[in-house]
Every structure is written in C-alpha cells, then in structure tokens.
Write a protein that binds this DNA or RNA. Sequence first.
RNA 1: GCUGGUAUGGUCUAGUGGUUAUGAUGAGGGAUUGUGGUUCCUUCGACUCGAGUUCAAUUCUCGGUGCCGGCCCCA
Length: 414
Amino acid sequence: MTFQTVRGMRDLIGQDACIQEFIEANFREVFASYGYLPQYTPAVENFDLLAAKSAAGEEIKKEIYYFKDKGDRELGLRFDLTVPLGRVASSNQLKMPYKRYQIDEVYRYDRPQAKRYRAFKQADIDILGVKGLEAELEVMLVTRDCFEKLGLKPRVVFNSRKLLEELITSFAKGREIEVMRVLDKLDKVGETDCKEMLKEKEIDAGIVDIIVKNDLEEIKGIIGEASEGLKEVNDFLALCKENELDFVEFSSALARGLEYYTGIVFEIKLDEGPSVGGGGRYDKLISNYGGQETAAVGISFGVSRLYDILKENGFKTSMEGLFLVSAGVPVKELVKIGDSLRTKGIYNETDLNGKSISKGFEFAEKKGYGFVGIIGENEIKDKTITIKNLKIGKQETIELDASKINEFLSRKDA
RNA sequence: GCUGGUAUGGUCUAGUGGUUAUGAUGAGGGAUUGUGGUUCCUUCGACUCGAGUUCAAUUCUCGGUGCCGGCCCCA
C-alpha cells in the first residue's frame, strides 16, 4: 500500500526541486534589489475573509478550499497572496509606501488540467501607498528583470478597468461584468464566437469590433476625451515608452478574473501556453477590509507554470563546488578536509559511503556536479588535491589551498 | 460543476478469461582496491479500487478514484 499526492498536487524531488529553487532565488534577488521585504502569512485564513465580496467574486469562491476546524470555525486556504496582504494592511499600521514580496503556495479547488494545479506557487510583489503610475511602472521593471534572469521573453498585455467599464457601459449599461467575461475570451474563441455569445445575451455585439481594432483613437470617440481610463492608458503607454519597456502592449480585451482590480490590469504571457502571471491596481481592497483607503498595485508570477516551462525547455541546474571521493583513505579524513574547505567558502560534498572511485564519479555526474576532488594517500602526504573537470575530462593536482582551488573551478575549459 | 479519453513495477512498455505476468530503464549491492556516464552478476519492484458476470477476472460490464485533455474559471 502506497499513498499518492492528493489530486492536483505534486512533489518536486531532487533536481526538479532545484529548478523551482532557482526560479525563487532569482526572483528574491530581483525583489530585494528594488527594496521589497519578504512577508509570511499563514496558508489558512478565515473563510469570511477569502469569500468577501470585494475579494473573490462569485466564480473564484467556488474554488476556495473550505473546511471547519475542531472548534467549528469556518476556514479556507488562500487562493492568492493579495487577499492576505489586504488583511495585513487593514489591521497593521504599515509605513508607506510598503513594498513586500511573498513567494508561497496558493490553493484552488478547480479541475486539474494542463499546467493547472490545485496547489501552486506564486511569487507576488505589491506596492501599497503609491497613487501614481510610477507604481505600475516599477512593477513592469521588476517583471522585466525577473524574466531576464530566467532567460525568458515575456509579453505583458495591459488594460484599464476604468476604460473597459466606460466602454462597455456605452454599449450595455449595467451588464459590465458579464460582457467583460465574454471579451476576455476573445483571444481564445475568436471574433465570431464572441459576437455570438453576446447576441445570445441580447447585447449589442458592435463592441467586439471596437475591441478587435484596439484603436485608442476610436475608443476616444466613444467614451470621450475626458475619460479617466483613457488618460490612464495613454499615460502608462508613454511611461513604458520612455523606459523602453517594449514588451508592454495595450489590449482593450483584457479583463482578468479577480474582482478587486480598480485600475490598470496586467497579464504576462509567453509565446505559447496559458498566462504566467498577472496583476494590477486594487485601490479599494484594503478599505473594504476595514483599513484606511490605500492605493495598491501588485503582480504575481506563476512560479509553478514557469517551472513547467523551464522543465519543458530542458533546463538543468548544476551543483556548485566539488564532490570529494576517496582513493583509499578513510572517509573521516575526507570529512575533515571538506570541512576546512567549506570554512574557506568552497562548497563541497563528501562521499560519505566511501564507495569506489568509479562509483563516486558516476554519482557526482548524475547529481550534477561539475567537479570531482580526489583525495588519496599521495594527496594527503603532499597536502594537495586532484580535481577533475567532469565536463571536459581534464584533471590537475593542485595545492590544497582555497584560492588555487577556486581558480581551477572558475576556469571554464583547458 | 459539465464533458471526452485513459489506467500493468519509480519511469516507459509487452501480453493474457486459467500455472511462476514481459522487456527496458531505474534504484540498492557486488565484480575491476587511483578515475565516471561501458560491460557483467545480483537484489528490489506492477496488473487503480469496489461491485457484477463467470467454475475462474489483470483481461468482460458497471461504478468510484487517479491521470491526460476540452468547457467554466484561472497563475
């Protein structure tokens, strides 16, 4: 009898876990370089918080993991990292602007499909207390840096919730949410089906033509020059241009599912597959949770999906440092040498089982080491170490000295 | 929540209404006691679960569950 992971959840083992760590480590570095601080919140929240109207909306409510504890309290697992942040911000006096990142697992009870899991990791950054579009801009800069670190080219499409709402209002007043849902699917189902869906709801399908053209001049003609949403979009486009963020583009079709957004919304895409991140401005969430009215912009990157993509691309992580094998000397001697190297900053792993040299090589290779250090009687006697570069097969016996070893390890070839 | 397909060791796979259910790969141990990803030996390890049909079910039927997709929704 063995046990499986629960539906829609998975283990990451060995090098697979290293790939995810690689993503997270790079993101942390980028976040830190902009002054974001880490934040931890529990996976379990009160159900009321998660289900609050201003947070989830009816659709995602169905996806909340819900349960009662032994004290009959109604609880749920977080479905994103923004709602917990909203709780934190509404119940603490944070120094503004407050910038934090959180890389954590979130849970959604939906049907597992391609790149869709019930437990998945997000890396989320948020800026609280900044009303200007500079917050949105910074979020784009962070996005650029994060994807660059992973060697991926993102495409960010954005829209303004305000603009979209104004536009829809002029076609179908009072049914904004419904129409938004349909338009959001434009990419997927195409123009004709989209119109068909609107006709079924007895809504003027003319809006689809406007959306497809994606022409801001034409939109201006409909919602008027004074439109707040329009200004927002134009200003943000100008900012992106100034900063050479050419991966950011306007799309009047983008809506996004979560209901807390109030301004600019983003979605991050790659050439293929579902989106790998998204976010936007949500200036009302914190006050809806009983806090002060607080401007807020955030974005989250889908770590689990990015993991899938790196994995599909054949990405491999490698082990830093050396794997130490013994050529006839007791393992405890190796442990001592390894220990002293480590205090000098050289990462190393000792073959604790003291297997044969050939087994040691095989093990090191499979685990992803680039170098094997061999210690035998000669090396002990001369205070040296023989290091072999596994990739090119060359080896050298050098002094047991941190700088000499580092020099060898940093040599790429020859 | 709706819907299609599928289910054999960790992974990939052969096969069958009836003896001990293939093969590969993998993992553990060993053969070569200072040089790897080669070879050889050895060990470990599977018919998704339940009900039904049947003398007999891994095999056929139905249902549950998982997995792979599509819709809804979404990172």
